[in-house]
Design a binder for these strands. Structure first.
Length: 409
RNA sequence: GCCGAGGUGGGGUAGCCUGGUAAUCCUAUGGCCCUGUGGAGGCCACGACGCGGGUUCGAAUCUCGCCCUCGGCCCCA
């Protein structure tokens, strides 16, 4: 036993990696609540859940986003010499899944996902190196109906957890029309400046003034119509009106990405700091990059962690029971606990505590009821149900306890 | 990668400027007082100076480097 690994005593505590979090019970309760809301809505709208691997070929992400993103990826070479990366987002993996598995499935294909992603960036408020995204992709339609459905779904999901964020809707067609005669580097820079709202620098670029006029216009739609036909966008907006989705037309959404094809949208929360975007999406084409038939898609990703930072939730709690036996009733109490567990959240002492200490524990741990079992209860086959809030107690059998606790009858 | 503020038991803190007692207090946790009735109280236990170097007789305190956290910049697929 001289191996230091086996010595008992303190050593330097291991800590979690930078930018990661331990999620404690109270947080997990909130997260599961939000997740189930999102999941329920996606299912109600006819979307099906998919899951993809936590790591993918590095190329999947460089094809989509360019070599520069390697700096911000957790990438590695496996023992077979393959270049892999932990996924930094889920749109590309889902597009890859579509190409590999679902190309022959009837369109439209409606998918949703919830998973953790990894980016090697400097952590700050609302930005972690492991974070969660909830998203949906609608594959197979380029019609306004598809864009409107996805935006409406985004709005419903956020609203379902009390985030009535106004969705900003824009179109890349307009910006691209403005910069169509400008060289690639300059237009890419312009897109970035638009995204940042850096109008001073934007004004110095060719086309910049026009873009600023558009973004700042009182009636941006009218302004945009002088630049390019807006049939598609106008149709999407009309459908959103029909679906009772409130939105703001905002041509400053650039989302910098080349694969977006037209409609783009984002949502923000004023409850957050610098990282205030909770949702982003748009219509795009990726499948052909990954070796599939070209297919139009629309989708969005929700920054799950940011949603949780932005909302203040009261998660409904179910009543908790503690079965409290005297020493000679412990075996009998185990049977009782098992029966109660058919319907109720039930704990039983594993610390060898006295009745008094068990009740003290029940109190400090926030239990709602104690089911006290001793000689008397074993003889009468009734149990003492004690309401720990009111202090009232009564003799009931298991069925009656379940009814009392669930329905208060 | 850059700027700023921080880091003392599980949580919250005093001490730091002005180096010197066994590092303060609250809380949480486990036990006992009390093996059939909780919330109070008393007693006991547990447990910390982020890491490493330097200065010094002596460092939580001064100093340097690093790590980490928070706010922001950059970036944001």
């Amino acid at each position: 036993m001289s191996d230091p690994k086996w010595t008992v005593g303190k050593s330097t505590p291991l800590t979690r990696p930078r930018g990661t979090r331990d999620l404690l019970p109270s947080e997990m309760r909130q997260r599961r609540f939000v997740e189930s809301r999102f999941r329920d809505i996606a299912e109600l709208w006819g979307y099906c859940e998919v899951a993809t691997p936590a790591f993918e070929p590095l190329e999947l992400f460089t094809l989509k986003s360019g070599e520069a993103i390697v700096d911000e990826l957790y990438s590695f070479t496996d023992k077979g010499g393959r270049s892999l990366a932990l996924r930094p987002e889920l749109t590309a993996p889902v597009a890859r899944l579509y190409v590999n598995e679902l190309q022959a499935t009837p369109k439209p294909i409606k998918l949703y996902y919830f998973g953790d992603c990894f980016r090697y960036e400097r952590p700050q408020s609302g930005r972690y190196r492991q974070f969660w995204q909830f998203g949906i992709e609608l594959i197979g339609s380029s019609l306004p109906e598809a864009d409107a459905e996805v935006i409406a779904l985004a709005q419903r999901m956020l609203a379902s957890v009390g985030l009535d964020a106004n969705i900003h809707v824009g179109s890349l067609d307009v910006l691209r029309a403005i910069f169509c005669d400008v060289d690639y580097e300059t237009s890419a820079l312009a897109m970035r400046l638009i995204d940042k709202g850096d109008f001073d620098r934007l004004a110095e670029l060719p086309g910049g003034g026009r873009a600023i006029d558009l973004i700042k216009a009182k009636d941006p739609l009218n302004e945009a119509q002088n630049i390019v036909a807006l049939d598609h966008l106008l149709c999407v907006l009309e459908l959103l009106d029909t679906l009772s989705v409130s939105y703001t037309v905002d041509f400053s959404i650039a989302r910098g990405l080349e694969y977006y094809t037209g409609i783009v949208f984002e949502a923000y929360s004023c409850a957050l700091g610098a990282q205030n975007q909770v949702l982003g999406g748009g219509s795009y084409r990726l499948a052909h990059l990954f070796g599939g038939e070209d297919v139009p898609s629309t989708g969005f990703g929700i920054g799950f962690d940011r949603v949780l930072d932005a909302v203040n939730l009261q998660v409904p709690e179910v009543p908790r029971l503690l079965v409290v036996p005297t020493n000679d009733a412990r075996i009998y109490a185990l049977h009782v606990a098992n029966e109660l567990r058919s319907r109720l959240k039930t704990d039983i002492d594993v610390m060898g505590r006295t009745v008094r200490a068990q009740l003290a524990y029940a109190n400090s741990a926030g239990f709602d009821y104690a089911v006290i079992i001793g000689k008397n209860e074993m003889q009468t086959s009734k149990l003492t149900l004690r309401n720990l809030r009111s202090g009232e107690q009564e003799l009931l059998d298991v069925k009656q306890i379940i009814n009392r606790v669930l329905n208060n009858v």
